[in-house]
């Protein structure tokens, strides 16, 4: 291997590495987010949401949180329809 070839390869690798590690990836980086807990009160009457009253509408004023019918999913089940 001649010195010229070595230099050519090394310079190519250096540039490639630079390109691969510094360019922006599509969609950006993945931010490291911690686990968190949140709650959503009824935006209409301000009441809290009770689990046994179902997920789709407010147990107090009838406001629709979601205009859909829940099916059997992973954690959410049909029974969770209000």
């Amino acid at each position: 291997m001649t010195d010229d070839n070595k230099k050519r390869t090394a310079s190519f690798l250096e540039k490639l590495r630079q390109k691969a590690t510094t360019q922006q990836h599509y969609g950006g980086g993945v931010p490291e987010e911690e686990a968190k807990m949140d709650i959503r009160d009824c935006p209409n009457c301000g009441a809290g949401r009770a689990y046994h009253k179902g997920l789709t509408s407010c147990a107090y004023c009838g406001f629709a949180f979601m205009n859909i019918t829940l099916t059997d999913g992973i954690h959410i089940r049909k029974e969770n329809n209000s």
Binding site: R40, L55, F65, M66, N67, I68, L70, G73, I74, H75, I76
Partner: peptide, 15 residues
């Protein structure tokens, strides 16, 4: 836009 909350969307997105 779909009129659902995140846990519902994420289940659909998985299923």
């Amino acid at each position: 836009a779909l009129g659902v909350e995140l846990p519902v969307w994420q289940e659909a997105n998985l299923l």
